[in-house]
Design a protein around this nucleic acid. Structure first.
Length: 288
DNA sequence: AACCCCCCCAACCGCACCACC
DNA sequence: CGGTGGTGCGGTTGGGGGGGT
């Protein structure tokens, strides 16, 4: 038996909002706020709308600080980079673009950016474009917020390490095969390639000998770093922009973010593919 | 001018998660 | 600890507008 609907669907208006409804909702929220209950809000405000609909209308359209249209190249890059890292987690991506809504970004991606990413089309920031900007400079992003959004860690059976359950969408790294098309600096030309069960990363520069690696779990925060933990990104795409890296004796591929931290050195981290856990692991620690 | 097609985006839907009891 | 209600999120849809013929 399914759960009860959130509202009486027969008695709520659906479809486009009229200016009067917008005004009513705005006026009510201005006077009373949400009162912590969107479900009850339309009744109190005298609107024949579902609470969810009111919430959506406010968040995506009526909110005063909203920014509409006019995506810049910089916005494109941020969206592309984050989509490559975390997939379609629009709310997280939106959190990096003040004034943008997840719905707006989702629409923008589906109608514009996705097309740019198709092979042979690309004007979305590709490897060459982005490599001109030293390394992938995403230092302006709120990385603490970004990583905090990644799902809760679970323990996995690889010694004392913790890994993140990716619900099958982890990058399919396998140790037994090794032919894939990741570019050290740019987009994977066709995301569907990631489905193949092999991986080869090329074009990395050599770095110094290994040092202790650090990683974080989403519940730890950057201050609670521990050794030997791994993190699998919940995504199915590879989009590595300007990342440098190297494979070292320990079987871990160390990939330098090139991120600069505003407040703490840990953000000079690296990404690693760890053989024993078969997980993509971003390590936060001193770059090797 | 009329028709058609395509694109954009606002809005809906259903599910997952979380807090509370 | 399980049930319930509210919230948040991502996928999808469909109406409307604009451009092309």
């Amino acid at each position: 038996m399914g759960r009860a609907p959130c509202c009486d669907k027969d008695n709520v208006k659906k479809g486009p909002w009229c200016p009067e409804e917008d005004a009513t909702l705005k006026e009510y929220l201005k006077k009373h706020g949400t009162g912590g209950n969107w479900i009850a809000l339309p009744r109190k405000a005298g609107l024949k709308r579902c609470g969810k609909s009111c919430r959506l209308r406010w968040l995506n359209y009526l909110r005063p600080d909203i920014k509409r249209g006019g995506f810049t190249e910089e916005d494109d890059k941020i969206i592309c980079t984050l989509y490559g890292s975390i997939g379609s987690r629009w709310s997280v991506i939106a959190s990096q673009l003040p004034g943008r809504t997840d719905n707006d970004i989702k629409n923008y991606w589906n109608t514009k950016l996705k097309k740019k990413l198709l092979p042979g089309n690309g004007s979305c920031p590709k490897s060459e474009d982005m490599s001109n900007e030293t390394t992938n400079d995403i230092s302006h992003l709120n990385l603490q917020q970004f990583w905090a959004s990644i799902p809760t860690a679970k323990t996995c059976d690889s010694g004392n390490s913790a890994c993140f359950d990716t619900n099958s969408n982890a990058l399919p790294y396998t140790s037994e095969s090794n032919v894939q098309n990741y570019d050290s600096k740019g987009l994977v030309p066709d995301p569907s390639q990631i489905i193949s069960r092999s991986l080869q990363v090329s074009g990395f520069h050599t770095s110094g000998s290994g040092s202790e690696n650090y990683s974080k779990t989403s519940s730890q925060g950057l201050s609670g770093l521990s050794t030997s933990s791994t993190l699998a990104l919940e995504n199915s795409y590879g989009l590595w922009s300007g990342i440098n890296g190297s494979v070292k004796e320990d079987g871990i591929m160390h990939m330098d973010f090139g991120c600069e931290s505003h407040d703490d050195e840990f953000l000079n981290g690296c990404l690693g593919f760890q053989e024993d856990t078969r997980e993509l692991a971003p390590y936060f620690g001193n770059s090797p």
